[in-house]
Amino acid sequence: MANDAEHSTATRYIWDVPARLFHWLLAALVITGWILGEFGPFIKTWHFYCGYAIGCLVVLRILRGLFGTPPHSFGSFIYGSRATLDYARSIFERAPSNWPGHNPLGGLSVIALLAVLAVQVSTGLFADDDILNKGPLAIYASTGLRSTLTAIHEINSKIILALVALHVGVVLFYLFWKRENLIKAMITGHKQVRK
């Protein structure tokens, strides 16, 4: 990856409307749902609604990952260990990656975020605080299973917080260290990429 300074670039339309809508809706819902879950009213009706919406978005994103086209399909952004390591070694270079889509590490982050959100929504459906909030599927699980899934729901919320913080931190690192504005690309859809 020594060619970064030299490679010629072009502006291309990378993130289509569904991708951008998905991203910002998901961001808003995860932040709202997380804050409501942790600090919101004790009756968690709106937290539940956020969870249902996030579940729908995650399912749609998985379908697009399985049956969609690059740069959205999972196959297009899951790289081998060699490419991933190469990318990781070059990450501290003070130059934009100009990657046409999710780079190898970014792709891993997409998978990780989808996975923790899928876990969060599915455990939430069975969660029960034994006081007055009960996931819609809680009645189908035994008391033991329910309390285990509720405990996982709580622990996993901390993992989500950590991964979201990492995601935002890395985007800021790209902005200030690598001088590559990924936020603007996710708003306009246009990204400076290698030819």
Binding site: P41, F42, I43, D129, D130, I131, L132, T143, G144, S147, T148, T150, A151, E154
Partner: peptide
């Protein structure tokens, strides 16, 4: 009032009760 009472229930469940059997 139910929300506040639920919170008061939770205050003990949080620290004095296992999440799991």
């Amino acid at each position: 009032a139910v929300g506040n009472a639920g919170k008061a229930c939770g205050a003990c469940h949080e620290n004095f009760r296992t999440k799991d059997f």
